[in-house]
Amino acid sequence: MERLDLIWQSLPLLWEGARVTVTLTICLLGVGLLLGVPVALGQVYGPRPLVILISGYERFFRAMPILVLLMVFFYGLAFLGVSLPAFGTAVLVFGLHSSAYQSQIFRGAIQAIKEGQLLAARALGMSRLQAIRYIVLPQALRLALPAWSNEYSGVLKDTSFVFAIGVTELTRQGWQIMQRTREVFLIFIAVALIYLVLTYLGTWLLELLERRFGIPGLAGQRREEHGRVV
């Protein structure tokens, strides 16, 4: 009972940690989205040199362990004399990393749209940019949503790695409580359960979004069968 009491007393701290985790996740997904869509468009519609450049970017960030990137940027920014709080560094690094993965998702979605869609738009007299803006993207974003929801659950868990640069999110809160109280199992089971709730809650919200904006015949493929976001 005493131990359950401990969990009860730790809840405010864990709640605080969960808030940081969620904020970080939302921010990094935002950065990843803002970078990922143009990267995908560039890869599909861009001129050859741009395609090569972008593919290199994508390849690099996907090949790198996120933890290594974190350390390189953490010390690299200091080396260059840029002072950014650890949280900002985390958003930047995770955002870049996620943009590479998100660009893959969006590229797949764009390429899944039949060639005729673009042709029909051009036939109406739309410019290439208009066609992309009004025809391709509205379809591609819908197609991408299920895979994007996978990306959410993937990065949510990965945010725990910012432990290494000292951002006090959910996992680090749990670790600090553990240091103080010497209670390991209950604390980390509680932490794990909060992650589980966040994972399923977020996925559920994204599913609502999917249904809200759903159009018959434009459902994306869920890639859960293949486990990790790739």
């Binding site: 868990k157 725990s160 749990g174 390991v184 794990a192 589980l196 399923y200």
Partner: peptide, 13 residues
């Protein structure tokens, strides 16, 4: 359970 929680938390456990 495993897929819904971070590997770091699992390592700590």
């Amino acid at each position: 359970f495993v897929r819904g929680t971070p590997v770091l938390v699992q390592l700590f456990l």
